[in-house]
Design a protein around this nucleic acid. Structure first.
Length: 457
DNA sequence: TTTTGAGTTGTTCGA
DNA sequence: GTCGAACAACTCAAA
């Protein structure tokens, strides 16, 4: 009997333990066939923006090609589609890499129950996860989860992880019927990075050779090509973090990069232990924080989202997000701080916008990252740490190249003055004046903090 | 057992 | 111009 390999966020063939398990399972039942299935979930599809949709479809097409055109793509609720496929082919088992997010955990439990209640009960087999160390495996002496990054990191290193999984033997990919094909995706204005497993591995190779040695110095520079650009590949599982970790030595750049991978694992662990933190402040006393709302707040959000706040580094970041579905991490912090501390808008509005548009949007990293900036999360930034968009722009985009790349109205300003266009004797008329005064809003943000400061639960 | 000190990502102000 | 202090409260592990 054939087995089913249900791909979700593991769109690759190498270093894929679930694939090995699927092959083994079909072989054990005297068959060699594996059905590679991807189910496009309408719930996730409809909440995705064009860049995110395009990336997924392109990545699926890439995987399809790697499977000699055998990827079986279906559109619908996995709770019904997966059992239907399993029943149709008489599957011996359905194989997945475990999902640790709130939605994925629930979905997989429902699919598992449906599979087991079929006339021919079929097991849902979880092998591996999208992490080097599965969420929940690293904990303190008393078994409770870590709330601070550095102790987590040390424990995570001590825990260790397996080497990359072996390549599968010959797999007989099998497509049982015509799939639903790929949904239509609208063309987006800018091109996406090359998707797929091969491109991810090549990008990793190039990054290691050309940029890893300067990574610790340059990773905060949005104007330079100093980062790995592997976030989307990690989100969709085109590459497994274990594959990357296996290539890292003890050089300073490698150490800093390993810590970045560990942040992803830390946040997955936090969300796993506190699933409600995807929607609510992790620290409940932040429930009563006085965020702005109403028409004025909506207009401010609109200005932020469309990149028209009048603060160049903020607008450059928000426009990069819309154009490419990606934003440099340093700039993510700057725009998040601006939404929260300067516009006094609820972090959840910003987090939702990011999730909709980021090709690498990962619920755990995204929500916990926003909460970190807001101050309500784990290991949170102190309330008084309020980014000054001009200072940050001058420090991390020292020549203004990043701003000019994404804000064409400012291209005539040839140097770092681009970060404060309002100071010019003749500011560009096509670019908006700042919608708020940062110095004023900073004091407002500090005053609002008194509501939660020192407050008991 | 209790104490102590360190903890991704900052800014401003006054000496 | 540079530099140190101040800006909370809490987690965690080493002393």
């Amino acid at each position: 009997m054939p087995s089913v390999l249900w791909f979700r966020r593991d769109l690759r063939c190498s270093d894929n333990p679930a694939l090995l398990a699927a092959v083994k399972s079909s072989h054990a039942s005297g068959d060699a066939r594996v059905v590679p299935l991807y189910v496009i979930d309408p719930k996730l599809w409809e909440s995705s923006g064009e860049a995110r949709r395009s990336y997924l479809v392109s990545s699926l097409q890439n995987l399809d090609a790697a499977l000699d055109g055998h990827l079986y793509v279906r559109f619908g609720d996995p709770t019904t589609v997966v059992p239907e496929v399993a029943h149709h082919i008489g599957a011996v088992s359905v194989h997945i890499a475990a999902d640790y997010g709130p939605y994925g955990t629930r979905r997989d439990a429902h699919v598992e129950a449906a599979l087991l209640s079929m006339a021919q009960p079929t097991p849902l087999v979880r092998t591996g996860s999208p992490y080097a160390v599965a969420p929940g495996r690293v904990s303190k002496e008393d078994g409770s989860p870590y709330r601070v990054y550095t102790p987590f990191y040390k424990a995570w290193l001590r825990h260790g992880w397996r080497p990359p999984a072996a390549e599968p033997d010959d797999v007989e990919w099998f497509t049982p019927a015509d799939g639903d094909g790929y949904p239509e995706v609208a063309a987006i204005s800018a091109s996406l990075p090359q998707c797929g497993e091969a491109a991810a591995l090549e990008r990793w190779r190039t990054f290691r050779v050309e940029h890893l040695s300067t990574y610790s110095d340059n990773r905060n520079r949005p104007d330079l090509p100093a980062t790995s650009r592997l976030s989307a590949a990690l989100k969709w599982g085109e590459v497994h973090p274990r594959t990357l970790l296996a290539d890292l030595d003890d050089s300073p750049g490698a150490e800093v990069f390993r810590r970045e991978l560990a942040w992803r694992e830390f946040y997955a662990d936090v969300l796993h232990h506190a699933p409600a933190s995807a929607k609510e402040p992790l620290d409940s006393k932040w429930q009563r924080f006085p965020w702005n709302s109403g028409p004025t707040a909506d207009a401010a959000f609109e200005a932020w989202a469309s990149g028209k706040t009048g603060y160049p580094i903020v607008d450059a970041g928000m426009r990069q997000l819309l154009a490419e579905g990606w934003m440099h991490n340093r700039v993510r912090m700057i725009v998040a701080s601006f939404l929260i501390k300067d516009l006094h808008l609820d972090w959840r509005r910003g987090a939702a916008w990011f999730m909709r548009h980021l090709i690498d949007g990962d619920l755990a990293s995204n929500q916990q990252g926003w909460q970190w900036v807001a101050g309500s999360g784990t290991d949170a930034a102190p309330y008084y740490r309020i980014f000054n968009p001009v200072t940050q722009g001058r420090r991390f985009d020292p020549d203004g190249e990043y701003v000019r790349r994404y804000v064409p109205e400012l291209r005539s300003i040839g140097n770092a003055d681009v970060h404060e266009p309002w100071l010019l004797t003749t500011p560009p008329t096509s670019y908006p004046a700042p919608i708020v005064d940062h110095a004023v809003e900073r004091l407002d943000a500090l005053a609002r903090y008194d509501v939660v400061k020192g407050a008991a639960e």
